[in-house]
Design a protein around this nucleic acid. Structure first.
Lengths: 192, 192, 192, 192
DNA sequence: AATGAATGAGGATTCATTCAT
DNA sequence: GATGAATGAATCCTCATTCAT
């Protein structure tokens, strides 16, 4: 998940992600990260300048990974509707396959602990932009409502996020069929 | 916002909500709460058993408040479509009027810091249940898709949440008109 | 020695002074101060804002004490020569009676660890000013060289300091007789 | 300043002296020394056995340098008074030209961080001994008070040190003229 | 000889909580 | 009930030192 980082950094980021999801940022001490990652605190500080830095790298790393995951295979000549479906299926797949990353981003994208610069970088590197472009294309073809593309992306994304959240919380179950109908609903929501 | 609590408790809860939104749970110390609320730490511990307790009361209090806010005026004989619209407009109004509460719930509804019992209580006292009932009614009338009502509520709620988040983050602006079209879209998404 | 401070503060300052003299600032940890003073680290931080703060309060407290010690009984009508002698005898007495304070000031009056504001406050509250006034009086009476009074005070003080240092290092011994002759020499040095 | 050491050692010692004067021993980390001197920590430990060792070598090196600087040209047949004057002028020159070394010695000659062996070596290699010999000669010629020569040297040195300190602190300015009169005063102080 | 990554004990400081007043 | 001083474990982080390369 964090290919651009070296081994030590990867171990630290992975471990941190895990602990935060289990215990909350508050209870995620450097000592615990060191112990569970098998990297000494001294070494951690050799590769990260602070705990904040770790969290922010984590944030940026996950968003980048998510962005690449979702937008891969989106750059084709196929009809908009096909790419629309593929993209959101990718999002579902992402959330189900990497729930830790998903939850982390969900919980901390509003946190003051994440620098504005990280949020900005995330926003630009994520999949929001590419998807908005797809939506703009759809608007151009008269397929979608004449709304701000980014807003529609957010709307559709929100639906998915909340279904995934309900699923992860165990409030209900998501299967292939449900996912398909959610995507259909999403299309209906924004289509003309 | 916290009517069932006494003055001291209200001051503590209000202050805590504010600080957490500004500074994150991590940086919200009891000393700071005491100072800003004008209540001594000793007194705080007279009314709350621990810091966790404060946060959990806060969580439950806000969810309860939100639930009452959204479901008020929903118990009428008007057509489903009208009540649907009124409910979601209330949700928008809630998010815009009480952004602190909104953000707090968003950020901590997944947090291990919130007891499962609080989450359960929240789920029952919130507006999810009543809205799901409305949706079930709509299904019965053949107006909505034959999907799990709770899932559809989540879907629609997710759209709204993400639009509000985008708005609060300053990514775009929400006005009356946009809100209306979002509600229309939401209806389209779940309607037959 | 630190009357204007409360009991806890006095204990901390006294202990700190002792440890620094034994072990050097570097090796004077808060944990050690806490242990030896019988005050918990938490309490120390209740009364002092940081370790730097302790050291600076120590510095200012000692200089103030020294200033009052030396200048007491200097404000009489007796001849300059008498008061000159009394003052420097007081300085000797001070150094011999409170060697810890003496050495601390000597070692740290140049240290970047001491704030400039402390140094300034020290300079004004110490005994340099009053003594310089006495010297000015002597110059006015044609008894002393026509030199900057402060410079002459420094000169005379330096002689004493270095004798005391030699004494404390065990390089030689200072007795009543030696002290008397040093004061006579000092007078000779600056007199006309 | 540290001719008997090799290039690497010189770089380390020079850098250390600088940093200590700017930042205090406490804040003088090996990492900082390594960085600023351009020598890796590994290499530093090849040439010095510990941080203490560096500081002590520094101490001894400076004292040695100072001793040679001051006593050079003292071994002549000229009258005592002439050599007396030349010696103290050299001391002034030393302090003004190498203030870092001067301040370092001043601040650490009492420090527990400096080994007793270093202090002893310093005492023997410094200029105290040679000057004391000159003073003894003066006593023999009936020119000086019948006091312990070392004590008189200390007295005179103290005067100078404190004037230089006042000068370095910016309390007043030292010029050629002042220096001359200080030396005259010093002679008066110890002469018969 | 030279490097600098790695170590982990120890540093200053904070903080939830208690309890005497 | 109310206060806030006191506690000391736990926090983040630094640093002298080592050692594989």
């Amino acid at each position: 998940m964090f290919e651009k980082y070296n081994n030590v950094q990867q171990a630290v980021l992975q471990t941190t992600l895990q602990i935060i999801n289990e215990k909350e940022l508050q209870a995620t001490s450097m000592a615990l990260i060191a112990k569970q990652s098998g990297v000494s605190t001294g070494s951690i500080y050799h590769y990260f300048s602070s705990k904040e830095d770790i969290i922010n790298e984590l944030y940026k790393g996950i968003v980048k990974f998510n962005g690449e995951f979702v937008t891969s295979g989106l750059d084709t000549d196929e009809p908009v509707r096909i790419r629309f479906e593929r993209a959101w299926k990718k999002v579902f797949e992402l959330c189900m396959t990497y729930p830790l990353g998903f939850q982390f981003i969900e919980q901390y994208s509003f946190s003051p602990y994440i620098y504005d610069s990280s949020k900005l970088e995330a926003y630009e590197g994520g999949w929001c932009g590419p998807l908005a472009k797809l939506y703009a294309e759809a608007i151009g073809q008269g397929l979608m409502l004449d709304m701000e593309p980014k807003q529609m992306v957010q709307m559709n994304y929100g639906s998915i996020v909340y279904l995934v959240k309900g699923h992860l919380k165990g409030q209900f179950n998501l299967n292939e069929e449900t996912i398909q109908s959610v995507i259909d609903s999403s299309w209906k929501a924004v289509s003309r």
